[in-house]
Structures are given as structure tokens and as C-alpha cells.
Write a protein that binds this DNA or RNA. Sequence first.
DNA 1: GTGAAAGCGCTAACAA
DNA 2: TTGTTAGCGCTTTCAC
Lengths: 338, 338
Amino acid sequence: VGIRQIADSLSLSVCTVSRILNDTMGDAKYRKETIERVRRAAEEMGYRPNMVARSLVSGKTHTIGLCLADIANPVFGEFAALFERDAARRGYATFVCNAGEDPAAERRYVDMLVSRRVDALVISPVGKDVRRLKRIANAPHCRVVLFDRCPGGVHAPSVQVNNRNAMRDLASRCLALGHERVGVIMGSPADSSLALRLGGIRDALKAKGLRASSLVTSKGTGATTVEGGAKGMRHICKKRTRPTLVLALSNVLSMGALAAAKELGIRIGEDLSFAGFDDFPGADLMTPGITVAVQPVRKMAEECVAFACASGPAKPVSKTLKAKIVWRESVRSRGQSR
Amino acid sequence: VGIRQIADSLSLSVCTVSRILNDTMGDAKYRKETIERVRRAAEEMGYRPNMVARSLVSGKTHTIGLCLADIANPVFGEFAALFERDAARRGYATFVCNAGEDPAAERRYVDMLVSRRVDALVISPVGKDVRRLKRIANAPHCRVVLFDRCPGGVHAPSVQVNNRNAMRDLASRCLALGHERVGVIMGSPADSSLALRLGGIRDALKAKGLRASSLVTSKGTGATTVEGGAKGMRHICKKRTRPTLVLALSNVLSMGALAAAKELGIRIGEDLSFAGFDDFPGADLMTPGITVAVQPVRKMAEECVAFACASGPAKPVSKTLKAKIVWRESVRSRGQSR
DNA sequence: GTGAAAGCGCTAACAA
DNA sequence: TTGTTAGCGCTTTCAC
């Protein structure tokens, strides 16, 4: 049932009904009675406004497109859930999309979202071709918000964590325990976040006066996947002088690395110290618990929603948040570990 | 830019452009040249069809509303990701919503989705009031699909796992190892799935000739949450005769229970055998790995998408799938465990 | 206080 | 081979 039938059933005009149901009578003053009649009829007939019609006229859909780089990463999943909740509170529905690290899929999603006239597109871009995003960001009806991965040149606000600093801090704390040979589980070289994190580790090494040769980078599959992490760990552990500390550049990699360690019979904590970037479910449940640097996911989601729902012209403000280190038991001092 | 400007720029009518761009010229035969001109213009002007206008005309939005009982449960998250992917392949965009076990939130979401005229509403209902769902299911434009929790009386297809059988099988295998006193980590009594699973455990006990008194049900928080699981485990472990085997009725409960066990210094496998319903991230990474019954999430997602996208009148078919047991190392024979 | 009418961008009968 | 026209359900300006 639509506004029309309720108007007919009451012998009123659609406009009257519309105005009453939307509380949007500028100068018009309706009789208390009319208002009541309309409200009741709407209720009784089970009227639900047709948002698509409304959107067509208003030009706003009250809809946000969230395009994630890879939902296999639990952090993205958590982010999505938090985002959706905050958006819903503000009256926005969100389309959740998963590019799965595939630029082509991302392109299709972005096109689809634009077609659906989302009011905002919140995206952690996987493709390096940002022309499309630029175009959209410059168009008036859809505001773009970048998060996690924030390529330059797009006129849009962005929300990210300071990857380099976070990883530097984590590495420093670990190195302070006496480790001198550290392995790094690397993922896709195309992911700029990972490069930054690796940079952070290098910083920490340098600050400690350690030579670059004390850093053993994994030759994984070159992909930021569980399997990639596992391959990396196996590779590192085959070395003649195995590192006493292994650092994984992402949670997905951590999960793979840990699986490989288990497989290899390497006891984390006792045989090998380990820490990773980003929390993952179960990191606290394992024995020992895994030390990680965690992104302030909740805060990120809040900021993104705020940018997405903001009114007025989009300002390309860049919010950089700080990660927090959750110290559990997986990193021991070098003596203990070996 | 819309169909209109491209029509104007070419001095054609909107209808011509529409038909060409949609390949929908029934009897009409356009000149190759015209077709080319239109295609090129659309491309150059960066035309993207306005789905909201199109939807208004067609009455279909090519959109599905997915309303989850609780995304804190990793299985739902995985389900959502799989669902979204399959739906996208069929050209559907999906609104992901999380009721968070809150009937009021669910109601709001359902209303919102109906307002947005989703073509299908796929839902694991948390509220016990199904009148609303009934109404929607009977309306012509939005088909309803139930999953996970499938209350009767709604004229809609449903997809679920055979909770009782699955848990019975899991429990039987565990009991075969000699355990005679088993603790159960219970969650919300309102969740019918949990009740069924508990029933499965009772079945197994009975089949083994064990008395009901050998079953110790946790007094948790009464909520299916991590904290609830932890409380349950603590409660059970305080008993004078502690069970040798603990079964958790859901993955969320497992996570809590395991956290509590760790806290209490109870070594899973060695001090206590443990198994749970539904997999969770890290279950395989822990030492020992946790034995679980897993739902065929992928299959469930596929079935749900198929129902949601089906054409023709909705048939209230009920698909019941089988869970699979993933046997890891957390359950040992009674002698070993104690 | 209330209604008529135009129009949002697009599709689809029906003309030409 | 192409155009005219009438809506889809709703909002909004302007008129009564």
C-alpha cells in the first residue's frame, strides 16, 4: 500500500498525506483531526514509505556503500559490523562489499554502488588505479571516504592507522628483550600498509644498532593469505640460524604462520618468540596468548561513518589513528626463548 | 549524467537511448551507426544507469536484505561474506544488518528493508513474534527466506542445520572415549537451536545408558556470549566432581569457556576434554586444536541465495543440512584426560 | 487548511 | 528505424 491508497480511502490528496506523514508542512496547518485520521489509516493499512520513490525525488538514498579490501581479514569484518551499526543509528543502510583483493571485483562493486546512487562510498582501495575514485570524489552526489589504504591524489577524507609507528613500537619492545635475529612474515608487496610496517621494523632495528642482515624476510607466496603466512614461517624456520623472534605483518599472516609453527612442532614462546600486526580471534585464547599491535577499529568505524554522513562539501581531511600494543605471552626475552 | 543528456547531445529520444543501452529493443531495429553513437556517447560521458529510477519503474531493486541474529558469531560473519559474494554474482546487492539478538533492533531493520523494497529478506529471526514476517512473506514483492532459526508458521523457505543430530553425533563420539560425567555450556534458553543441541547431548547420554544426572548444565549469564561461556565454564569447574568432558553449545560459548579455562589454569586435553558446536577462528591453531561440529556454511549461503533469487511464487520448502565433525585433539579418552 | 500539478530518471506501450 | 506519451510513488511549489 502506498500514500495514494491511503489518500483515496480518506478522500484526501496525496500531498496532504505526504506532508502529514513526514511532518513536513511548512506553512500548512492541518486540523488535528485530519492528522489523526491520516496517521491511523497509515498505521492500519500497514503503510511503509517507498524509499526508492522518495530517493528518486530527493536525490539521496540514505545508503552507504562499504567496499572492503578483504573480508577474510577479521579486522575488516569487525570494522564492517561496527560501521553498519553506527550508520544504521544515523538512518543509513549499508551495502557491504568484498573486493577480496581483486581490483576487477572492486571496479565492478564501485560501479554498482554508484549506479545505486549511494550517498557515500567508503573504501579501502585494492587497485592502484584511482582515476575512477577521483572522478567519483569530484562528482557532487557521492562522497568518497578512504580507509586503511589511502592512496594520494583522491580528493577525499581518509582514515588510517600509523602503520610504521605502530610496528616500530611493537618491534622495539620485542627487541628490548634481547632478540638480535628477527624473521618477518611478509605478504603481498603491492599492499602499501605492509611496506610501511616493514619500514617500522627496520626503524626499530636501526635504533637498536642492529644490522639489516639480522632481518630475515620470508619468501612466502607473495600473497597476504593464511597460506602465504604458513609458507613464510616454514621458509624462515628452515634457515641454518633460525631467528629467535618472528614478526608477522598482518593477522592473516599470523594465523598462517602460527599454523605452520604448530605443524612444525615449534612451541611459540618457548622455542620462538612471536608477535603480529592486528589482533585476530583466538589470539588471546591460545597458550601462550599472542602479542599483537591492534588497530582502533571502533574508532576507525566511527570516523568513517562521520565522514560518510557529514553534510556540506567534502574536505580531504586525513585522520591518522594510533595502534595499541596488546602484550600477551608470546614474546619472551631471548634467554628464556632459547 | 543521465540518459536524457546523452539523448540530447545526440539529438535522439530518451527511449532510443534507453533501448540501445539495455539491449531491449523488442521489435525495433536501430541502425548500427546509431547504436555505436549511443554506446560511445554513454561511455564518454561516463553514464551509469540510475538504479533507483529503474527500480521505481520495474518494481524490483535487485537488492537483498540480510538480517543476521548476531554477527559476533563468526559463523554468521562467514555466512554473510559468502552470501554477499554469491548474490553479487547474480547481480544482487545485499544490505547486511545485525540484529545483535535484539528483537527491537530486528524489527527496525526489517521495516527499513521493506521500506527500501528489497526483493528478498533473508533472516535468522531473533524475535519470537513472527506476525511481521508472516505479513511480509504473504506480500507479493518481497520474498522471505528463513535460515538458522526457523520458526514455524511463516510461509517461506528455510535453510537450517540438523542441530540435534549433529550434537548427538559429536557427543556420542566423545562419550565413546569413556567419559561419564559431562558438562554443558549453555547460552540463552530463548535460542531454540541451543535447546535442540542440548537435546542431542541428552540423546547421546541415553543411548550410552548414562543417567541424566551425569550431565552438568552451566548456569551462565543466560546469554549466548563470550562472557556467558566463561561464566558457564567457571561454574562447572567449581563443582566438587568436575566433569571430564565439557561441551559448548555454540562457538561463542566455546570461546568464553576456553578463555575461562586458560584463566583457571586448566589444560584442555590433558586436564579436561572439550568440544563445541560450530567452528571458530583459531580453533585449529590452538594447542590442542579444538574438536567441533561445523555447519556447512558455504552450502547454507548458496541455498539461501538461490531461494532469495528464485523467481516464481515462493514455496515454503525446508532444507535441512548436515553438520560435519572436525576432530582435533581437544578430546581424549577418559584415562588420558584424568 | 487543502489540493493540483510538475517532475525525479527511467521503461514500455503505442504511434509514426 | 525512431519518437510520443504515460506512468512508477513520492515531494514540493504554487494556487485556491
